[in-house]
């Protein structure tokens, strides 16, 4: 009896191990034009539409993160905003700009047949959408980066290739310029790993304050919160942006810059 049980167990183990062989960790990385892509399907399919494909690269070249994620109110986690066609038509979310004035109108209640190609500019999952902007043409002379979109966005702004807008009339509040907080070091736990110099300046220029605090970074006192790479890789802290839209975590030494003597 025990013997049968044991062999059944062994068999199960063999099967389990074989099935493990099918799951790998070494998946394909998104291509430059795919990086930062978000698929929106909270309501599309239910409404008989193809899900929306949103590309961050085009929008981030034109607008600051803050403008969309603070002023317009898009959540930072894909699929959690719950955007509806009606919202867009009332001038919220996509409709804040896509109102037929600033940019082509997002969503309508009446779709003229000859114009249904308009819908598919956004509702394009699995289709080859005819986009107004082609990634390669648009980013042709942008400074190149190694990962993500293959673009060094920081340099792109420094060299004037992009000038993201931070104010949207009727939506944004007129504000004073921001007083930049100091940069600070984050000491790595692993011996020999360079320290991180966190630049508030680089981050606030596109994000402002309330995009990161306190939702993403609650730690008030320096050193009070211990950040672990494991959590960051799981999409917490820096990982909220730096694995989805901003340069990915593969680029270790872009943050771990201060060589330990």
């Amino acid at each position: 009896m025990k013997k049968t049980l044991f062999f059944t167990g062994l068999l199960l183990l063999l099967f389990a191990s074989l099935s493990l062989a099918l799951t790998g960790v070494k998946k394909r990385r998104p291509l430059p034009y795919e990086y930062g892509r978000v698929e929106l399907n909270n309501f599309s399919e239910k409404a008989g539409q193809i899900p929306v494909v949103f590309d961050h690269w085009l929008h981030r070249a034109k607008f600051t993160c803050r403008l969309c994620h603070v002023d317009i109110g898009f959540a930072m986690k894909a699929g959690t905003t719950g955007i509806k066609a009606a919202d867009n038509m009332q001038g919220y979310y996509c409709g804040s700009c896509h109102n037929d004035k600033t940019a082509f109108a997002a969503c309508t209640t009446t779709i003229p047949r000859q114009n249904s190609s308009k819908c598919s500019r956004c509702h394009s999952l699995g289709r080859t959408a005819v986009k107004q902007y082609d990634f390669r043409t648009f980013t042709q002379d942008f400074p190149k980066g190694r990962f993500g979109n293959g673009i060094d966005w920081e340099q792109a702004e420094a060299t004037g290739k992009i000038a993201p807008i931070d104010f949207l009339a009727g939506v944004s509040i007129q504000r004073d310029a921001l007083v930049v907080q100091k940069d600070f070091d984050l000491i790595a736990k692993v011996k020999g790993m360079p320290e991180i110099i966190f630049s508030h300046k680089k981050h606030t220029v596109w994000n402002g304050c309330e995009l990161c605090h306190p939702e993403i970074f609650l730690g008030v006192k320096k050193g009070a919160t211990q950040y672990s790479m494991t959590e960051i890789y799981d999409g917490k802290y820096c990982g909220v942006c730096h694995s989805t839209v901003a340069f990915p975590l593969l680029d270790c030494q872009r943050c771990h810059t201060k060589q330990v003597q």
């Binding site: 190694r146 011996k191 020999g192 030494q253 872009r254 060589q259």
Partner: peptide, 14 residues
């Protein structure tokens, strides 16, 4: 050239 980025060489972990 054009793809890699030059960083300081890190001391290998133990």
């Amino acid at each position: 050239e054009g793809i890699s980025v030059q960083y300081d060489t890190l001391q290998a972990q133990q």
